[in-house]
């Protein structure tokens, strides 16, 4: 068994291999690998005795899960109405140019994943960019470089 397989099996065992823990198991795998590898879904389906298609259905239904490898840091640029009128599209453009990816993609060095969101519910401090759960308020195009530098090693 490779180390990845051992890790996946350990996560499944932690939840006692119960069917009702499917979501929790997927969340733990997502936290460990930053995405859900195919093998992990197959292993989960086999151990929990759930049809593979149902596991895949759950994994693709929720946005919290990703079947594609994601970057170490997630940049979420709010594109809600309030942020939009204050220039969120320009901020997104700046991110896209600097990272050389489109929204929804991951950089080649697996450092950043760029995402958009419809509204984060904190319109008063918009435009908002969230990087790994840290909220950056009143974003401007100029601040983009500083933020990226902070998270880039």
């Amino acid at each position: 068994m490779t180390s990845d397989q051992t890790k996946i099996q350990a996560i499944i065992d932690k939840h006692h291999g119960q069917k009702k823990s499917l979501m929790a198991i997927l969340q733990d795998i997502q936290a460990e690998f930053r995405y859900l590898p195919q093998e992990s879904l197959r292993a989960v389906a086999k151990t929990l005795d759930i049809p593979l298609i149902d596991v895949v259905g759950v994994a693709t239904f929720y946005r919290a899960f990703s079947l594609k490898p994601r970057g170490r840091h997630t940049c979420t640029v709010c594109q809600g109405t309030a942020c939009h009128v204050r220039g969120a599209p320009r901020i997104l453009d700046e991110f896209e140019q600097r990272l050389k990816i489109k929204a929804g993609e991951t950089t080649e060095d697996k450092n950043f994943t760029l995402e958009t969101v419809a509204c984060l519910g904190c319109c008063a401090i918009g435009p908002v960019v969230v990087v790994d759960g840290d909220y950056h308020a009143h974003m401007t195009v100029r601040k983009v470089g500083t933020i990226l530098k902070k998270y880039r090693k």
Partner: peptide, 9 residues
Amino acid sequence: GRAIGFQNR
């Protein structure tokens, strides 16, 4: 069979 199913939303 359970070979096909709904995906995404």
